[in-house]
Nucleic acid binder design. Structure first.
Lengths: 164, 164
DNA sequence: GACGTTGCTGTTATATTATAACAATCCAAG
DNA sequence: CTTGGATTGTTATAATATAACAGCAACGTC
């Protein structure tokens, strides 16, 4: 079986396993932290994980409505806010969209690679990038509280596809 | 006289000089590139430069209206699009707002330090950060076309102010 | 188990940011 | 001068996000 990848997932990977793993990790993390992963929140997390592409809030809203869940924008935004707080999803600022967090276990300053060809996103957690940022900021006496690092470009799969 | 700073400008710096320098650089750059820095575009650039804080598109729109310029959202967004293309302003994704480019002369991958206390923004052009990103991306076979690096935190001035 | 408190969800309304589409105008090149 | 392309004006609307309040469910305390 193919395992969920921390970078660009294989085009044919066990995505159901991917989602299950994410939901299990979420249950555990919320349990430990005394946070309530309600049915709605769990469902939104699952919807976010349904692809490795970022999902917009209104796409999630439509999905909820489609399955009969009474929903309006705040329904989705509140669930997302919770999931962000718990470190279970990330927000991509350039896209106004959300992806599941690849490493909900540990605290981390994430960086994202966004393939503008296929739309997939890979989450990096590269300490070297983080360090370079900290150093650059410190040199100006600036104290960092949060980083947004989003890199656009072309993923390996799409580069191969474009050559052939 | 205090000179325009590439990082956080002194609280009392020659801001008029700052703006004039930016407009002059813009004229030159557009001249060289055969781009038309029209009255409207020049005026929008000037409004962006009126502070070192990021400005939203609708704030610019209000400013234009206030001075009698017939304006609607497309007026401002089109001017901003032009200025972005020419490398004269940057867009801050986290804030949906715009700042003047500190180094319109040269091509560069910019990083931004956003002070969440005073709202000012400093533009970095730190090759080490750029390099770390390139390396991290290459390691996955990812080709970078654009970077968004926005760091939130507390600037030196505000740290001092908070201590006293 | 009743009760109050807290947090979660539903609902309506609205704010904020951004773009589509087409008409009018300007301007530079021939 | 006129013609073609770029720029601006104008109207309408799309897409993203939040405020405010009401109802309800879960949780601890007695």
């Amino acid at each position: 079986m193919t395992v969920a990848s921390p970078v660009f997932p294989a085009l044919t990977h066990d995505h159901d396993g991917c989602v299950r793993a994410a939901l299990d990790a979420a249950e555990q993390r919320c349990g430990r932290r005394g946070a309530r992963l309600t049915t709605l929140r769990r469902r939104v997390l699952e919807l976010v994980w349904n692809s490795h592409e970022p999902v917009g809030a209104y796409a999630l809203l439509d999905a909820l409505k489609a399955e009969g869940q009474a929903s309006a924008p705040p329904t989705v935004y509140r669930a997302l806010e919770f999931l962000l707080e718990q470190g279970l999803v990330h927000r991509l600022e350039r896209l106004n969209a959300f992806v599941g967090c690849a490493r909900p276990e540990e605290a981390h300053a994430a960086q994202f690679l966004i393939c503008t060809t296929c739309g997939r996103v890979a989450e990096l957690d590269d300490p070297a990038i983080d360090a370079a940022l900290q150093v650059g900021a410190e040199r100006l006496g600036f104290t960092v509280t949060h980083q947004t690092v989003e890199v656009e470009g072309c993923c390996p799969d799409c580069q191969r596809a474009l050559l052939s």
